[in-house]
Design a protein around this nucleic acid. Structure first.
Length: 275
DNA sequence: CGGGTTACCTGACGGC
DNA sequence: TGCCGTCAGGTAACCC
């Protein structure tokens, strides 16, 4: 489900709720068996804590408390956070955070590939274990540069699409935006990473950033489960150039959009516009 | 070791 | 109608 743009939109939605710090009065867990079991201590740590800030790293969200500990959440494929009131439960709600103002934050995740975890400290320099292997943030031009990408692609035998979806190379790019960015950059997804030229790396860096920023501006992409914290759907799915457009005419050259599986994931491209 | 494949889980959809 | 196979915004544990 959610790639960087969707997670960032969720972060902004949550941020609005915590414009002023709010205490969590009660934590209710419906089940513990997400992709990783929720730590038994999580409710104890969160209950009575005050959330003052929401940050994002890659596709992870951190709910920072005033005592330095933080709730870490990953949405997996179908995870969502929504604001609701008592009695507004939905199937596959796994956790409820009861806020001091009477509102409830519900974590829902039908497939349970998501993660809820507790990190003890998020002080400067102390990086949660889950973040250790993560690559640079693509929206940060100082971190994610043509030189950097070219360097990481050199000597890599995998396809360029698999490479940019590798969170150690660059974070936040998932299956939709990988295809979309490669279309914009004019690069075939199956090309070997090591054959990508310097110039192409430069273009790809620009296009990855561009497509992610446009998607954020459109509120992300809603295919199935994804929605904002207020239940609204994203709008970027109507702007897909290639994703899920197999056999449709390319918006640029009218030739038919191709599809194949790469690294186990559905991949879409225009064989005329992408070389 | 790098890189491909599979498992985790539920629901939606198409074909028979 | 209903059953079965396939596929889905991600990640990580496996295999070679």
């Amino acid at each position: 489900m959610p790639e960087l743009p969707e997670v960032e939109i969720v972060r902004r939605g949550l941020e609005k709720i915590f414009v002023r710090p709010l205490k969590i009065e009660k934590v209710q867990l419906k089940r513990w068996d997400l992709r990783d079991p929720i730590p038994r201590a999580l409710p104890r740590k969160l209950q009575g804590a005050t959330i003052e800030r929401i940050s994002r790293r890659a596709k992870y969200l951190l709910f920072h408390t005033t005592t330095q500990g933080a709730l870490l959440s990953h949405l997996g494929m179908t995870g969502s956070w929504r604001v609701c009131r008592p009695g507004e439960s939905m199937p596959h709600d796994h956790a409820y955070l009861h806020l001091e103002d009477g509102r409830i934050l519900a974590f829902r995740d039908p497939r349970r590939f998501g993660v809820l975890d507790w990190v003890e400290s998020t002080r400067e320099g102390e990086v949660p274990k889950r973040f250790l292997h993560l690559g640079p943030e693509p929206l940060n031009p100082q971190q994610f540069t043509a030189e950097y990408l070219q360097d990481r692609l050199r000597g890599r035998k995998s396809s360029i699409k698999v490479a940019i979806m590798n969170q150690e190379v660059v974070v936040g790019v998932g299956n939709i935006y990988a295809s979309e960015a490669l279309f914009r950059a004019g690069i075939q997804p199956a090309r070997r990473s090591l054959r990508i030229t310097r110039q192409e790396s430069a273009r790809l860096v620009v296009k990855i950033r561009e497509v992610l920023e446009e998607a954020i501006a459109q509120g992300g992409s809603t295919i199935r489960d994804y929605s904002h914290t207020d239940g609204q759907a994203g709008q970027f799915q109507s702007r897909f150039a290639v994703y899920e457009r197999k056999n449709e005419a390319c918006s640029n050259c009218q030739s038919l959009i191709k599809h194949r599986v790469l690294g186990g994931r559905s991949t879409y491209w225009c064989s005329r516009c992408q070389r």
